[in-house]
């Protein structure tokens, strides 16, 4: 509540820009299927590599599919993967982080696992996991969630440890409050800020990495449209039909940029140091 009250006076240009850019993408993917009559999977060899024009607004690819409608579907898949990965790794990371900060023995086990996972570069880990699990949307979500939960667990653990050291948590202990009460009424509300910021970044990174996985061929399988997969397919025609790679590439940059702006803005707004100074 207190945060909500403060939001209006503290909302900054980053947050507004981020939200505006995201809204545009979202509108684009919602309205798109209504105004375009094409099927994202329908091939039309006669129309292959048509330049953008009044019929195919973003041109066609090497088998004559409409790039516009494929980008629209690609955005949907990217956003779904981003949201689901952010939620799953957010929830598991929070549980792991809080219990690590609370119970020293669990801490050793959990943090060693987290360190182990974090020792691998995220994308390589995701490739390996996607390779083991097999391609497909569900497996990408699993692979990316496993790759991103350690970062959230670490942020949550540090934030929780900071809150646990405060006198207000001690005052709750002295009142005889249970651990569950302290976790839900004291810890979670007070670590919400860094957690929200980290989840926003995870959202962006998941979308980017889904594209990379699809680009590398271990992500969303053809012919399902995905932004990364389209960039990968368009690579061979970059000199003759640059529109195949340009539009999905631009959209990826657009989404990631807007989420990063949103994350930066949230960080600035919710950062405890700035909050204290104001």
């Amino acid at each position: 509540m207190h945060t909500l009250l403060k939001i209006r006076e503290k909302t900054n240009a980053y947050i507004l820009t981020g939200i505006a850019l995201l809204t545009i993408v979202f509108m684009f993917s919602t309205i798109g299927p209504l105004v375009s009559a094409f099927d994202p999977l329908l091939t039309a060899p006669a129309m292959r590599l048509t330049a953008p024009g009044s019929v195919h607004w973003m041109g066609t690819d090497d088998v004559g599919r409409d790039v516009f409608i494929r980008v629209i579907y690609g955005i949907k898949i990217s956003l779904i993967i981003g949201v689901v990965v952010a939620l799953i790794s957010g929830i598991t990371g929070t549980i792991a982080g809080v219990s690590a900060a609370y119970y020293p023995i669990t801490s050793k086990v959990i943090m060693r696992i987290v360190d182990g996972i974090m020792a691998f570069p995220t994308i390589i880990l995701a490739i390996v996991l996607a390779g083991i699990l097999g391609a497909g949307m569900r497996n990408i979500i699993i692979a990316l969630s496993i790759s991103y939960f350690p970062m959230i667990a670490r942020v949550v653990r540090n934030a929780t440890a900071e809150v646990l050291a405060t006198e207000y948590v001690e005052s709750a202990e002295v009142l005889g409050k249970s651990n569950t009460y302290i976790i839900f009424r004291y810890i979670l509300p007070n670590i919400a800020s860094p957690l929200i910021v980290q989840i926003t970044y995870t959202f962006a990174m998941a979308i980017l990495n889904e594209s990379i996985l699809s680009f590398l061929g271990v992500g969303i399988q053809i012919p399902t449209p995905s932004l990364g997969g389209m960039v990968s397919d368009g690579r061979n025609y970059i000199s003759t039909a640059p529109w195949i790679i340009t539009f999905p590439g631009l959209v990826i940059s657009w989404i990631v940029l807007s989420l990063d702006l949103l994350g930066d803005g949230l960080r600035e707004m919710l950062d405890p140091r700035r909050r204290r100074a104001s």
């Binding site: 405060t166 006198e167 207000y168 001690e170 005052s171 709750a172 002295v174 005889g176 004291y186």
Partner: peptide, 19 residues
Amino acid sequence: KRHTIQIIFQNPYGSLNPR
């Protein structure tokens, strides 16, 4: 038994849950 002994801390800024 906790309620029988209470504490008042030094730093009034850190001893109340801000939320």
